[in-house]
Computed example of a mutant assay.
Amino acid sequence: MLHFITGGQRSGKSRYAQKLALEKSSNPVYLATARIWDEDFRQRVERHQSDRGPEWTNIEEPLNISDCEVTGRVVVLDCVTLWLTNLFFDHQEKSVDEVLEKAKTELEKLLEKDACLIVISNEIGLGGHAENALARRFTDLQGWMNQYIASRADEAIMMVAGLPVKLKV
């Protein structure tokens, strides 16, 4: 089962995903993809961690998400945007298409683990066009990956102002 949850920053994606996971399992997995790059972000991560209780198994994996042993578990993958950021900057010499294929392959390997995946992503292309080529390349990558995940998902939700809007059921 693949649940896809997307939306803007602070739209309620993580809270919704965590609630869904706890409805499905008494001991879900939180697969965090973030790298800590400054003190402000460290505090955000710590706040997210403290919001979750001891029933969560936390796994931190910034790149190779399919290496995580999650077979048979309910897993919140938070988040695709940070994971893609890591892939994008670790493979700057590659084209957007090459990074996209790498991400798709990695996601497919994770889907083979027969887990219930709740995948969180961001809709970053809803505003104006990015002002530089690097940001435009990343926005393209994010948009194409979101489309791919949504096409594979059993359910897709867009969070708006803390409210889930069903896109695909």
Rank of each mutant, 00 (worst) to 15 (best):
L2T: 14
H3T: 15
I5R: 01
T6P: 09
G7Q: 02
Q9S: 13
K13Q: 07
K13W: 02
S14E: 14
Y16F: 08
Q18D: 10
A21W: 14
A21T: 14
A21P: 11
L22G: 06
E23K: 13
P28W: 06
Y30R: 01
L31I: 08
A32G: 07
A32N: 02
T33L: 03
A34Y: 14
R35D: 07
I36P: 08
D38L: 11
R42N: 10
R42S: 07
Q43V: 15
R44Q: 08
V45Y: 09
E46F: 14
E46D: 12
E46G: 07
R47P: 02
R47A: 07
R47S: 05
S50W: 10
D51I: 11
D51S: 07
D51P: 03
P54M: 12
P54S: 08
E55K: 00
E55L: 06
W56C: 03
T57C: 01
T57R: 05
T57M: 05
N58F: 12
N58C: 08
N58P: 04
P62I: 15
S66V: 06
C68L: 13
E69C: 08
E69P: 11
V70S: 02
T71Q: 09
G72M: 10
G72H: 08
R73N: 02
V74H: 05
V74F: 12
V76E: 00
L77H: 06
D78N: 05
D78G: 04
C79F: 00
L82A: 07
W83T: 00
N86S: 03
F88D: 00
F88C: 01
F88S: 01
F89P: 00
S95K: 01
E98W: 08
V99L: 02
V99F: 03
E108G: 08
K109G: 03
K109Y: 02
L111E: 04
L111M: 15
E112T: 15
D114A: 10
D114M: 09
C116L: 13
I118W: 04
S121H: 10
S121D: 01
N122Y: 06
G125W: 10
G128I: 15
H129P: 01
A130M: 13
L134M: 15
A135F: 13
R136K: 12
R136G: 05
R137N: 07
F138Y: 15
F138N: 04
L141H: 04
Q142T: 06
G143E: 05
W144D: 09
W144A: 07
M145S: 06
Q147T: 12
Q147Y: 15
E155P: 12
A156W: 01
I157T: 11
V160M: 13
V160G: 06
G162T: 03
G162Y: 13
P164H: 05
V165E: 05
K166H: 14
K166N: 11
L167E: 04
L167W: 09
L167R: 02
K168A: 03
V169G: 11
